[in-house]
Amino acid sequence: MGKILLARVDERLIHGQVMTQLSKKSGANAIFVVDDQVAEDDFMKNIYLNSGTRTGLQIKIFSEKKCLDYWMETSFENFKVIMIARTIETFFKLIQAGIPVIELNICAISRKPDTTSIIKSVSITKEQLEMLKKLSDDYKVISYFQAIPSTKKVNLEEAVKIMG
């Protein structure tokens, strides 16, 4: 059975930091990108597959549905996975559908209307905060906000305070 070592919300999906740091430190042997838009876009899919391969890790790109199918069918084989999605909503769906996530690192979500900034690189809505609380209450998911390992880490409790 496979294992998700780290789940990460990052609008940029696979990028420099993932390639250079995360892939080497975490003990992972695969990166799963879960994104409906990229999964349907052969050109961008290729870009991510191609550059990701340079990390030496196995790269897979799924739609939300395909990711769940793969989990049901294979339990992610023997992969030790860094799972990346663009939104909190994606993980909310995946976790409720049974994919086991222990830690959820909210890394980069840019500012939009009706969002509050939690750390420099992350702004979320009240609805998204509620999702994280539910994941914590019902699925024991530990969510935290952190851009890169060397920067400040904000936990869910502190985020709740910031959001007022």
Binding site: M19, T20, N50, S51
Partner: peptide, 17 residues
């Protein structure tokens, strides 16, 4: 761009078509 596979590169890819 500075790094292969990083954001400036990925964004170029998103814009090229």
């Amino acid at each position: 761009v500075d790094l292969f596979g990083a954001t400036p590169y990925n964004v170029s890819a998103m814009l090229v078509n």
